[in-house]
Amino acid sequence: MGERHETLAPAPAGGRRPRLGLWRDRELAGTTIDLTEGSLQDRILTATLRCLGRWGTVKTTIDDIAREAGCSRATVYRTFPGGKDALFLAAGERELLLALGELASLAAEAVTLDELLGTVLAAGVSTIRTHKVLAYLCEHEPGVILPYVSFDGMDPVLGVVRGVLAPHLERFLDRTAAADIAEWLARVGMAYGFDPLDGPDLADPDEAHRFVATFVLPGLEPCSDTLASASDNLASASDNLASASDNLAPASNNLAPASNN
């Protein structure tokens, strides 16, 4: 089991797994996902990503993915009903959850608000810039990515980032400000990550810290009285991560109920 997977799955008792359906994909909503390295789902999604990074969405076939994962076509279909498109969304959603898991652990380690904002922003922008498959798709098939980062299409991502990061920010800010700034991190991360244009390089931690100190810290009033409830909030942070996607999936689609408590 790789370290990067463990950061994502601080599974509460009962071993709850995140449930797919962030982008309201009818076929996927409610499918639970096993993030353990080497699991069948992990192998298939890793294979999907490899194929995407090599051939893009149009040329990749289920056969390619099955071959890369070392299983049969039938197993791919059974594991992720809905075909190619559902598989691509599942692979994308898992990448997002893994990246958010890493951001959440950076947020948890941060000692001050400045440190949290600068570190998480730099890591988020850096992930967007250095993710090879994302870069390949942005370059060769931008139309595949743009609907998830433009207009209302970015709402699911804003929502899931808020859900995961706001509880960490509540160590330093009141609840409203924490949610506002969690969403700000998502927006600024995407704006500078996807469109470098001539802006500052926020993947560089020093620049990110300067940026945060210049533009957003002056508008925040850290509340010391929220520190008392910090541990409560943190307990709910990992829970939010686990349930982030099922919160967004329609309730009626709970095909695979979470395990008994």
Binding site: S150, F151, M154, D155, L158, A179, R187, V188, M190, A191
Partner: peptide
């Protein structure tokens, strides 16, 4: 400009 475009695109919460 970036922040304005982001909020124009979606109001989020």
């Amino acid at each position: 400009a970036r922040l304005f475009f982001s909020y124009l695109g979606s109001q989020g919460h």
